[in-house]
Design a protein around this nucleic acid. Structure first.
Lengths: 380, 380
DNA sequence: CAGCATTATGCTGCCTAGTAGCGATTTTGA
DNA sequence: TCAAAATCGCTACTAGGCAGCATAATGCTG
């Protein structure tokens, strides 16, 4: 049950502490600094660094005299983040995209293409694997260095990455995304829903950086709500967390076909149409403004309910809605205040359409964290 | 940032592993068994046990030859759970109760009394402290062995244990419960809301033992929703998670004064009245049945919304509602199915009115866990 | 440009805490 | 009574941490 530790365990632990510290700092680190930050002795750090350089995880840089500082110039060490690579893919009805990053999450390569025959999961997954290989080439990396990957997809995806339900396409139900991708590219794969990964991305390097409880919402032609509780995706029973969208649609009528809802549509033409309506509203066109109001009203009924149940500290609007942030946000805020909802902050995504892809990267990184960087000690 | 570990750290870690293993097993444990379960060598376990016996945490029992087994009878060790004690108190408008337990959560002593002058926080807190002392005497323990305590109270209580809002009594707003109790009994104190602790208790040793995402709801004259996500209390922004109750009351009208709602009232007379209506419904009285239906309808509007947003895997009804479980639960289930809510399991509390008190115990235990038992290693 | 303060480097020696495993001890069962 | 089984108590050894000292490389000062 509770595992004890021998001497080699302590070394693993301390190595991981050093590695994490190296990963956190953007610049090269000296031995002394590392010793201070980990609380270990300089001697111990010296031995650990020797081993890490040997293993290829760390590079020693040339000594550069620190100008203006007395004393012998220190040895400088840096994480070789590219020692291991991660992949992220995103597929939706019309196109797919992939990125490859180092263990710091720096994106090194990209690929993007229209998907053929989306309704056939097999060919789409072939395409997804191809996209990863392309992005890997673009990153100048080899398949051996790839350690893990994650895929972002629409629909309800359970904790094991199996597609439970995908609107308009029954062929995808039951598809085991990690399993299928693992057969094509032999690394551990993880899968989650667009919206959940959007939320994760926003917290990592987007608009939700300082928040632990976050709701990310894409509302319109395509709807999805991603929930982060204590920084971790919350799916709920059978992935039902966030299904309030469907519930409200059932009660108050769907807005899939509302002109403004097209902002979140994957179809270019509908997007353009919606944007032009938003432009008109921005210019003061009364009919367009009424449409925006109507759309805001619908959004508010969902966001208010979320505020009274989950009560995140921040709600992020994404998936296309960011394009109407200037006309939409204040209207939504005002209506939420009128509904006496808790004064939860509301922002537009700062990552744009790449959000879910970036989130997939973070997802893979989190899942691999202890495997890449080693175990952690939890003190009081 | 990331803390490294020296040799004494490894001993602390291994000691905590041994201690946890001892805490988990109900019966006395042999050295060999402990060595196997922790993965440590028998020699190491021997040394650790010596130290733990010395410190009073562990007692060595008399050797009893295991009948029917060959070989030298093993030494047997047992956690002296009473080496440290924990306290829990609960206060509501009319009465207070306290329990004292050992570190395993076995309740060793109890106390209960009517509270004088509830609207005055100071005298109520004096009473609470007295109750703890009484329970301590009942447990046969001394104040020195008391290590931590927690208090369950109504109202919105923030993460620091400060009362933010308490209906009908403004005097309590801003009261720092852990601080106040700490001034009276000098141990670390923690505080949370009834409902949150009710949920925690239910997961610990009640109806939610096998669930991680739980909603505990008391709905009626007194209303409160406690939410557990990944086994931990979720309060939400400014404690607003679960405020859906108030929101629904605002929208659909309050049911505080509904005859059935009296089940959750702290006032005996209203309870009796409500129970008699439930009895009548049970006997088939049409008017009473209609009342139950009406009440169920109201509950469902709240539970359905929670199912679509938080989607726990289980909803537990408590706070008095358990007394009507037989007539109420099926009606609620049926209506939720009709509303197309996710098929989330619904149960009545199995702890009765002591739930929140037991939850407070668990809360204190969780918060003190690493201080009592030492740090933990998180492997992949 | 020599000398000093400053900072970092390689070590050696020492200590803690874990493991392996051997002979002794205590019991059961033939 | 003796072999087998199971555990005990211990010694010898190893891993990996720490303290701290002599040495090295630099900037500054007179």
């Amino acid at each position: 049950m509770t595992a004890g530790l021998d001497q080699s365990g302590i070394r693993r632990l301390n190595t991981s502490a050093a590695l994490r510290e190296l990963a956190v700092s953007a610049e090269a680190v000296t031995m002394t600094a590392l010793a201070e930050r980990t609380g270990l002795s300089r001697r111990t750090i010296e031995l650990i660094l020797d081993a890490l350089v040997e293993a290829g995880w760390v590079a020693e840089l040339d000594r550069v005299p620190v100008t203006g500082a007395a004393g012998r110039p220190p040895r400088r060490f840096e994480l070789r983040a590219q020692h291991a690579l991660l992949a992220a893919v995103r597929v939706n009805t019309l196109e797919g995209a992939a990125v490859v990053s180092d263990v710091r999450g720096n994106i090194l390569g990209r690929a993007r293409r229209a998907l053929r025959e989306y309704p056939d999961p097999r060919s789409t997954l072939d395409d997804a694997a191809d996209l990863v290989r392309e992005a890997l080439v673009d990153a100048g990396g080899t398949i051996e260095r790839l350690r893990a990957g994650a895929i972002a997809s629409g629909g309800a995806i359970d904790a094991d990455g199996v597609v439970r339900r995908l609107v308009h396409t029954e062929h995808w139900a039951g598809v085991d995304l990690p399993g299928e991708l693992g057969r094509r590219i032999h690394i551990p794969w993880f899968a989650d829903n667009d919206a959940n990964l959007g939320a994760l991305a926003e917290r990592w390097r987007g608009a939700a950086r300082d928040h632990d409880d976050v709701v990310w919402a894409q509302l319109g032609s395509r709807a999805g709500v991603g929930i982060l509780i204590r920084g971790t995706v919350h799916r709920g029973f059978q992935g039902a967390a966030g299904e309030i969208v469907e519930a409200v649609s059932m009660r108050a009528g769907s807005i899939e076909d509302h002109p403004i809802a097209g902002l979140t549509s994957p179809v270019r033409q509908q997007q353009r149409l919606a944007r032009s309506r938003v432009d008109a509203a921005r210019a003061g066109d009364p009919a367009a403004l009424a449409e925006v109001d109507e759309f805001a009203e619908h959004i508010v009924s969902i966001l208010t309910t979320l505020s009274w149940t989950i009560a995140p500290s921040l709600i992020v609007l994404g998936g296309g809605l960011e394009d109407a942030a200037d006309v939409l946000l204040d209207r939504v805020r005002e209506r939420m205040r009128a509904a006496r909802a808790p004064e939860i902050e509301l922002r537009a995504t700062s990552l744009g359409p790449d959000g879910p892809l970036v989130g997939a990267l973070k997802f893979a990184l989190d899942r691999m964290d202890t495997q890449l960087f080693g175990p952690v000690v939890h003190e009081a």
